[in-house]
């Protein structure tokens, strides 16, 4: 019993050491749009991020933060992500697959709501 517990611990250590820093690309389809946003976008596009600060220079008040947009068409998001815009560099298909990008763009469009 003791040996098998140690064996499992050993396996856990090996797995921890061999674990990829980021999720392997081939497994990315399992990530939800929320997780993708957190992993790829939030650092710049949440409050206080550089993307938000740069966008505040040219967007109407309250629209600089992506998730507070009143409208964000999916086609705009997919175009901007693959080509970059302004100070934002593009994202390659190894960072976000086409399927992930579509799901993310759709989710962001649904998050955007006209203000009353």
């Amino acid at each position: 019993m003791r040996r098998s517990v140690l064996g499992l611990m050993g396996l856990a250590v090996i797995l921890a050491i061999a674990m990829p820093a980021a999720v392997r690309s081939s497994e990315r389809a399992e990530r939800s749009p929320q997780e993708l946003f957190a992993a790829r976008c939030a650092y710049c596009h949440e409050a206080g991020g550089w993307g938000t600060r740069v966008l505040a220079r040219r967007m109407p008040e309250g629209e600089a933060q992506l998730r507070q947009r009143t409208s964000l068409p999916p086609a705009l998001t997919t175009l901007v992500v693959r080509r970059g815009i302004g100070a934002m560099p593009p994202f390659t298909p190894t960072e976000l697959s086409d399927e992930e990008l579509q799901a993310l763009a759709q989710w962001l469009a649904e998050e955007a709501r006209p203000r009353r």
Binding site: Y43, C44, W50, V54, R57, G86, A87
Partner: peptide, 16 residues
């Protein structure tokens, strides 16, 4: 971690 330099890209005009 930081991405601060991206904030200076548009210093001279956008797209910078």
């Amino acid at each position: 971690v930081s991405l601060a330099p991206l904030g200076a890209v548009d210093w001279g005009g956008s797209p910078g």
